[in-house]
Design a protein around this nucleic acid. Structure first.
Lengths: 323, 323
DNA sequence: CATAAAATGCTCAATTCGAGTATAAGGAGT
DNA sequence: ACTCCTTATACTCGAATTGAGCATTTTATG
């Protein structure tokens, strides 16, 4: 146990937020512009003395940088290994930064954000993760590029893993593996960060960087958030954190599809929501549907007390999405 | 973004490990004896300069303190809020510790541990979590004690939540909610740590502390590990990290039961394992079963490349366990 | 008033799942 | 060798869940 060794070094801790919102069926992350190279980053800042909890520190930073007030917040992961370059500051004290990342969900706020803050579509970061209209055209290219990276020796296992993650083959697409897919692309040198992190020039030869890059390891952190969120909507009612107080079942479905990136079977989706008793009618109707008006619903807060693990076990339609 | 403010404070980071092993159908955590009050703690130590990654630092500490070499390691959670007492050190530098907790799985090692290191049965820490022979006798008491804590105002919701977590009622037991149960007990002042953390004397009046206490927030960290592990065996083949190279299906089942704390239906368990193609026969048989010899199995490493989310979707027998 | 667009309701077959029954193959005791 | 006990393994059955599609209702639009 922690002998108070003199060698002990205090490191800097950054708090980083992936703030997610969905608007008009599109998912967004909250970003801030920076003056440095990549230009776009997640809101973040160092943990400072005054803050009573880590979360409080995070909220403060996000509000300061974006004027966005957080609601639901959960811890994601603590990064300390890779991208934070171990540039020692000098005399015995290590300056390596550890960053604690959080996932926050807000229902799209109408308030004006800070000037330098923007909502960035998360499929701008990961185009291949959007399969709502079938596999993304980019997927084929990525698949080929990845296979080209195989060292002949391990090529069998490599090929299998590529197929597993990017599934152009017989294996089903697993939408929760966003992080693993990003990491595979990173390791294969198919995203710009891979070169940037090693201070190599970004090659322009065979392809263009698929998706927008972010500062530091922020794109990786965002991938972590997506993986987590896509998994979590299946067993916890977090989806409702993204919804306005009243919504139609179609809007709810659109939100679920936006997050998971796959099309859902409409009738089965309703069945799921209803039999899980997640929502109740408000009495009102939405008439701007373009067809039969939809009943307005609200989340039943007390499901949290009733059901052991409420959530929407969404799964892709078998046909659709494989078009 | 992180303006290099002078106010910025460097905090101390502890790396803490929950090392899990299963032996003879019983789950254990690796502990070290300390000289301070609670006497027992998880292996842990501060993050120091030399270590290249957080995991490497963790492995080093655990090996140094226990002589146990880690295999599978995954990050659990970063604690910074609660129990780490915010005793400021003085002059502008905060001494609050953040601790990054890891879950490690090893197949029970035969090597001798360090003197002060021991394997502690995790149900010594959380007796109520073991329902392999039906609900633990302690559960009734806990349930009553918890209900007694209800402020009359919120009593309805409180009662529901108690029932949801400790389910003496109609709701099914959710073995994954170990952490939430521990936290409820903590908040209700039913575990000793609740008083210790506030420097209050530990009351002896109504009851005895259910389960063994650990140093600092280590019991909470262990609860987090259990929750995570119980969830994870359902969708990733982590169970095999705890098994010897060859094993029988019964041993595998015993291990699954040890972790999840619930009895499983034997025939269905085999069906699951087989249809998931998680294992293959080695050819050998185990004759020390006390009955018909069992075929020896080994884990099929390549399932990691084949199936999208291999795991054992274990679920309790409906009858058994409610005895 | 016909038509299009959604919303909502219902059916059906294929799996999956919980549970139970039946059979096989050893060892221990007589 | 035979009986009994114990565990392993095989197979069956009904209920619940799930993927998919068809049918009907209710609006707005032209």
């Amino acid at each position: 146990m922690a002998d108070g060794a003199p060698e002990e070094s205090r490191v800097r801790i950054d708090l980083t937020a992936v703030v997610v919102a969905v608007d008009a069926g599109q998912p967004y992350v909250l970003t801030v512009d920076t003056t440095e190279a990549p230009g776009i980053a997640l809101p973040s800042g160092p943990l400072v003395a005054g803050q009573r909890t880590l979360q409080a520190g995070l909220r403060a930073w996000v509000e300061a940088q974006t004027k966005c007030r957080l609601e639901y917040v959960e811890q994601l992961y603590t990064f300390g290994d890779r991208t934070s370059s171990p540039l020692d500051g000098g005399e015995g004290v290590t300056h390596r930064a550890v960053s604690i990342a959080y996932l926050a969900l807000v229902s799209m706020p109408m308030e004006q954000l800070e000037m330098q803050a923007h909502w960035l579509s998360w499929y701008a970061l990961f185009p291949w993760e959007d399969r709502r209209d079938g596999p993304h055209p980019l997927l084929g290219e990525l698949h080929d590029d990845l296979l080209a990276k195989a060292r002949p020796a391990a090529s069998q296992a490599w090929r299998q893993r590529v197929d597993l993650l990017f599934g152009t083959g017989l294996l089903p697409w697993d939408e929760e593996r966003t992080l693993e897919r990003y990491e595979m692309l990173y390791n294969a040198g198919l995203v710009d960060e891979a070169f940037r992190d090693r201070d190599e020039p970004i090659p322009t030869t065979p392809r263009t960087n698929p998706g927008v890059s972010l500062a530091a390891d922020h794109r990786r952190i965002t991938a972590t958030a997506i993986s987590r969120l896509r998994a979590k909507i299946k067993y916890r009612p977090v989806l409702f954190e993204l919804m306005p107080p009243e919504f139609t079942l179609s809007q709810l479905q659109k939100t679920a599809e936006a997050l998971s990136g796959i099309p859902l079977h409409k009738q089965n989706f309703r069945r799921l929501v209803e039999q899980q008793n997640l929502v109740e009618e408000t009495g009102g109707v939405a008439t701007d549907t373009g067809g039969r008006p939809a009943k307005l619903m609200r989340f039943r807060e007390d499901v949290l007390l009733e059901r052991p693990r409420p959530g929407l076990r969404v799964s892709a339609s078998r046909r659709v999405g494989m078009a």
